[in-house]
Design a protein around this nucleic acid. Sequence first.
DNA 1: GTCTATACAATGATAGAC
DNA 2: GTCTATCATTGTATAGAC
Lengths: 197, 197
Amino acid sequence: MGRWEPDAQGRLLRAALELFSERGYEATTTAQIAERAGLTKTTLFRLFADKREIVFQGQGVLVALVKQGVEEAPADASATSLTANGLRVLSSAHGEEQRRIGRLLDPILATNGELNERAIYKRFAITEALETALIDRRVDSWQAGILADLGVRAYYAGYALWVVSHDSPPLIDYVQAQFQKLQGASARLSEDTARRH
Amino acid sequence: MGRWEPDAQGRLLRAALELFSERGYEATTTAQIAERAGLTKTTLFRLFADKREIVFQGQGVLVALVKQGVEEAPADASATSLTANGLRVLSSAHGEEQRRIGRLLDPILATNGELNERAIYKRFAITEALETALIDRRVDSWQAGILADLGVRAYYAGYALWVVSHDSPPLIDYVQAQFQKLQGASARLSEDTARRH
DNA sequence: GTCTATACAATGATAGAC
DNA sequence: GTCTATCATTGTATAGAC
């Protein structure tokens, strides 16, 4: 049992992804994950709050990043620019390593309600962080909510395209393209409504 | 043990809300809930998928209602009208009974991450149902996503106001007011962006 | 300060009896 | 349809080893 070896969390994450891919999420016990990582169940639960967090704890930084992106934007930035900057910093956390993890994780997510529920919870946490950060930058609270929904929708749509792509463009390119499209669709929606009066 | 008495689910829901209010969600065991309802733990888990579903299973109909509301809207309805009709039928499910349950449940939700996670999952399910129903009515898929976010945001904001109010107006009045405000904020957002070119 | 061993409570599944 | 009984697994708590 190679104890004291470094990166216990990383080893547990890799062991979990392997086992979940091999035999599914439910058919894998926490004891098996710990064993493959050369640790015990006790240690696993000291490092992760629950079984789901083994694969999702990495997303904890995303909340801080989107907040930071909004805070760091120029003083004269529009509400939309503040959002775009949040998305830019948020996306910057995703490199090849995250793409590889995503490719393993997404099929598992799709077939498991328990994991999917946690994924949605993380999405909501990012949305709330973005909304709060925008309000802190004096964006109108109605607009902050709308932009948070729009921005996070762009982020997840962009992510879905990026994770399966074999191209070189970084995630932010995909996210920005989605954000533009959604803004255009939103503008057309408002025009349509106005035209009906 | 008054077995064979009717409305086992309702008895379990009431028992759960009482016990959660008295001693908190985590301090209440499923055996205690079953006991207060005059049943056993086994029966509880046959009627509900897990402990959280005791208080959330009632929301399962909401997904069907919002879908139905969009489907039943007039053939010439705009995308916005389709959404409004979905919200109208969705809101129609909430009477005094639901308000009473909400008043008990909301404080418990606020203090428990596990329950909160399930609540967010239900919100997402309603959003997806609305988005899909709009797409089925030939709404552009970008606009469908935006309207689903906007509509569900209006629904939850309206619900939060309604549940604590002591006035007579039904939920739909609150939801419609929120939907109007959000549409206005969205239009101003698009104007601001256009003006910057 | 991190890991292990052990014991424990609670969730949720399953099988057979009424 | 419900009950009793038993079971595997998750997740916690404690005390001690390196």
